[in-house]
């Protein structure tokens, strides 16, 4: 269980995360959604000890992330940031093998290699496992980073917009993979997501953020409503069910046909 209590972080005078308290249980996929600047990435950074909080605490199974040894924590919780500027010219297999570092400290036994191969297979990376990262496309590189986190095999896995450079096929298969990891292996997977349809269809729980605070938090079926979504995105959003899936629609200025609305969002020449 991840317990967040009174977490606050500000940059200068701007408060980015404002007194957030949350409990995220083991098992299941938790999606974090919200508009730009809502504090989603900062919350993830604080929860994973990449950032230091101004106030408040985060504990993972009772372990205070601000105080616990980095080595111990790395066997329980892993995190993948959105932007990864990797300078080292590593092969995909080498990178994924470094995911085992917290467990092996560099001496990989054959059972450790099994983890690596499994992570490579999960993300469909075996054909390019010998390629260097700097020779890959953005999407392939992103899958390699996710494979590294999977091979780290921690109970808690935090991802900041892991779908950002993936096409729809890989995005959907990535979400299937993360959901399976959370359901079949009892992992807690926390994912910051941009796409509310993907969040609605894959997450078991959804945290909605706005202005550094948690606006709502609950089971997807309970919080996936037009009222909740409209309240954080500040535009009218409606939620429908279509063949069992969630589909959200949003109001277009001047109606679905376009045309001259009263309050056009986009102005010509903008």
């Amino acid at each position: 269980m991840i317990e967040i209590d009174g977490l606050t972080k500000s940059y200068g005078r701007r408060i980015v995360v404002d007194g957030v308290s949350l409990t995220i249980p083991r098992g299941g996929l938790t999606g974090i959604i919200g508009p730009n600047g809502a504090g989603k990435s900062t919350l993830l950074g604080l929860a994973s000890r990449l950032l230091a909080a101004d106030r408040g605490t985060v504990t993972v199974d009772g372990l205070d992330v601000a105080r616990a040894s980095g080595e111990l924590l790395a066997r329980r919780l892993s995190v993948l940031k959105q932007e990864n500027r990797v300078a080292a010219r590593l092969t995909v297999r080498d990178l994924v093998a470094f995911g085992r570092y917290p467990h092996s400290r560099g001496r990989l036994s054959s059972s450790e290699w099994a983890h690596v191969e499994k992570a490579l297979a999960f993300l469909d990376l075996q054909p390019i496992s010998g390629s260097f990262l700097d020779e890959l496309s953005g999407g392939q590189r992103q899958r390699a980073y996710v494979a590294m986190v999977l091979s780290q095999d921690t109970d808690y896995m935090l991802f900041d917009e892991p779908l950002s450079s993936l096409d729809i096929r890989h995005a959907v298969s990535m979400m299937h993979l993360l959901r399976n990891a959370s359901r079949s292996f009892g992992k807690a997977v926390v994912v910051v997501l941009h796409d509310i349809n993907i969040a609605a269809n894959f997450a078991d729980r959804i945290i909605g953020m706005k202005d550094g605070r948690v606006a709502f938090h609950g089971d997807t079926a309970d919080v996936m409503t037009g009222a909740f979504l409209s309240s954080i995105y500040d535009i009218p959003i409606r939620v429908h069910r279509l063949e069992g899936q969630y589909v959200t629609t949003y109001a277009l200025p001047g109606g679905p046909e376009g045309g001259a609305g009263e309050d056009p969002v986009l102005v010509a020449g903008d």
Binding site: S48, L50, S78, K81, R85, Y101
Partner: peptide
């Protein structure tokens, strides 16, 4: 990088 290093402990 710093973030990945810290993630790996």
């Amino acid at each position: 990088g710093g973030d990945m290093s810290r993630n790996l402990g």
